Amino acid sequence: MATYVLIPGAGCDAWLWHRVTPLLRARGHDTVAVELPCEDDSAGLAEYADAVVTAVGDRADLVLVAHSLGGFTAPLVCERLPVGLMVLLTAMVPSPGESPGDWWTATGHAQAVREVNERHGRPADAPFDPDFAFLNGVPPEIAAQVEEHSLNQSGTPFLKPWPLPAWPDVPTRFLVCRDDRFFPAGFQRRVVRERLGIVPDETAGGHLAPLSHPEELVERLEAFRTTL
């Protein structure tokens, strides 16, 4: 039995994982869906890592799954807990000394979004639309609940440089979501190649794949775990 530690992205509570956790538990695993202090202006990446470590407690056989902004937090956790596998799900991949706020420009994210807009018949510089960026593929009855589980994300975690000198020595896999409009697949493949030196795997869904395609996601996670 493994313990899956599930880290949400920015402005999300643990509900992001509510369709994933029962599927993992049905396979005999423990799960920890972490609540991060997203609305706390005194909390930065260090406090986010603290929240994960506290939630895990003394559990063992850890598989860490990090979504979106969680890519900045998960490696910090790996420095403090005996993580056997880290899976980055359509996540931000930091470079040493880079803050989450600087990541967008450093990776060329804006151009990737312009290209997605044009592919979908939108103006290249169309205003940000969270429904377009996040909810594609999410069942309507689930999408209707997203707003009540959205948090007012503090800007504090985006301000300070990522403190690690290098990526932790932990087996790491990356899952690109093929229909992601926020972190597009081609953009992610390039960033992962440049920053981690690995070829990412792919799964179905958009940016909120835990809500849209939980079964496929669990299959991918289990395949990673069993082939370590």
Rank of each mutant, 00 (worst) to 15 (best):
P22V: 13
S150W: 08
D131F: 05
G9P: 10
E202M: 01
E222L: 14
P130R: 06
L45C: 10
H213V: 14
F132A: 05
V218S: 08
T3F: 09
D13Q: 09
P96N: 14
P75S: 04
S95R: 15
R189P: 10
G108H: 13
P140F: 09
L196Y: 07
L135G: 01
F134I: 01
S212G: 15
L164Y: 03
G101V: 14
V176W: 02
G186Q: 12
D50Y: 03
P82F: 03
T3A: 06
L36W: 02
V52P: 05
H120S: 10
E147Y: 05
L64E: 08
D201Q: 07
L196S: 11
A43L: 10
A223W: 13
P96V: 14
N117E: 04
L217W: 11
L228K: 00
C177A: 13
A46T: 15
E79A: 15
C12F: 03
L211V: 11
E202R: 03
C12P: 04
A106E: 13
V87R: 03
E115Y: 05
D13V: 05
R122N: 11
G44A: 10
G84M: 02
R195V: 07
V77P: 01
P163E: 00
G57F: 15
E98H: 10
V34A: 03
T156K: 15
E216N: 11
T105V: 15
L76E: 04
H149F: 01
L45R: 00
F224N: 05
L151Y: 11
M86T: 13
Q188T: 08
D58Y: 11
P94G: 08
L175M: 07
V113Y: 00
R178M: 10
S95G: 04
T31N: 11
A204E: 12
R27N: 11
R119W: 10
H207P: 00
L151A: 05
V138A: 07
P127A: 14
T21A: 13
E202H: 03
Y4D: 02
A143M: 06
P139F: 11
R190E: 06
R122E: 09
A49T: 06
V146Y: 08
N136E: 09
T226M: 04
C78T: 14
A185V: 02
V65N: 12
L62S: 10
A204Q: 13
V176C: 13
P210T: 13
G97P: 11
A74K: 02
V170A: 12
E216F: 07
Q111F: 05
L85N: 03
H29F: 07
V53S: 02
V5P: 09
A46G: 07
V65T: 09
A74D: 04
A144M: 11
L89M: 03
Q153L: 10
C12H: 12
A106G: 01
